[in-house]
């Protein structure tokens, strides 16, 4: 049986929902439908969409590759100073992305300690490259994967892993044969969230990576630029981004429900 929701909650609840739903509906109304297809298939728009999808997927892979192990360490190890390590990982969730972009610029920029070294010794410049876009996106998206994976690991508990160990499985075998399958749903939804965050990334990217078609101008940067010259194009591409976002939510929700 469902519990009854107190009546006084209905009005604020409805307002909260409308606050999100109405602007999105307004966007749909503002779209120049007769020219919609033309607007979203210009070479610049397609280049931006393609770059966003590619870097988004690459970011997801980077988050899995580095954020996955970090989540396991946070959930399972007894490292001293674990709360401190965890709060540092969470920083990008709270930090304005522009600030993230600036910190990356001061570290990896041509005059920064790391960027300067790479530039002098190997002739590698990080800003203005697609790699910089991925770096910025990973910076802001990683906490999403780490948080949801750590949560999944804690909920799953260590009982199965303990049993596997008593049966003689090595820590590596336990990880691949027991832990990963158990937390797979959490891993999936964490990855999808990281991908979604990367797709919407704007502040850190424009500050750190710059904006050049096909190299660093992702969909949000393209929309920002278009809004200054061709509002119809900006609105049309915004709708594309909304549709992609809805798809992402649907995918991650169905995983949750299973």
């Amino acid at each position: 049986m469902r519990t009854t929701v107190p009546r006084f909650l209905w009005v604020p609840a409805a307002l909260a929902w409308l606050l999100v739903a109405i602007p999105v509906a307004g966007l749909v109304l503002r779209v120049d439908w007769p020219n919609f297809l033309g607007l979203v298939t210009t070479p610049s728009a397609l280049a931006a969409l393609r770059l966003s999808l590619e870097t988004g997927l690459a970011t997801m892979a980077l988050c899995l590759l580095f954020g996955g192990p970090l989540a396991v360490v946070l959930a399972r190890s007894s490292l001293p100073g674990l709360p401190f390590i965890r709060s540092v990982v969470l920083l990008p969730l709270v930090l304005p992305p522009v600030v993230g972009g600036l910190t990356l610029l001061f570290l990896f920029g041509r005059t920064g300690p790391v960027g300067g070294f790479l530039d002098r010794e190997f002739g590698i410049t990080i800003p203005f490259s697609t790699g910089a876009v991925m770096l910025a996106q990973t910076f802001v998206a990683m906490p999403f994967l780490v948080v949801s994976l750590e949560g999944a690991l804690r909920t799953a508990g260590e009982r199965y892993e303990a049993v596997a160990a008593t049966l003689g499985a090595s820590p590596a075998t336990t990880l691949w044969r027991v832990t990963v399958p158990v937390v797979l749903p959490g891993l999936m939804s964490g990855s999808v969230l990281a991908f979604a965050r990367a797709l919407g990334e704007f502040g850190a990217t424009i500050t750190f990576a710059g904006s050049l078609e096909g190299t660093t101008r992702t969909l949000p940067l393209f929309i920002y630029l278009e809004s200054e010259s061709d509002l119809d194009g900006a609105v049309a591409m915004s709708l594309v981004l909304v549709v992609v976002a809805i798809l992402v939510i649907v995918v991650s929700r169905t995983r949750d429900l299973r």
Binding site: L105, G109, R110, T111, P127, F128, I206, A209, G210, S211, L212, E213, T216, R217, Y224, L225, E228
Partner: peptide, 20 residues
């Protein structure tokens, strides 16, 4: 062949000022 096409003059100035 610019490395980046900025939104405004301040953006361009910033890239030169930071040495990037």
């Amino acid at each position: 062949t610019p490395a980046s096409e900025e939104q405004d003059v301040k953006g361009v100035l910033n890239r030169v000022q930071t040495g990037n």
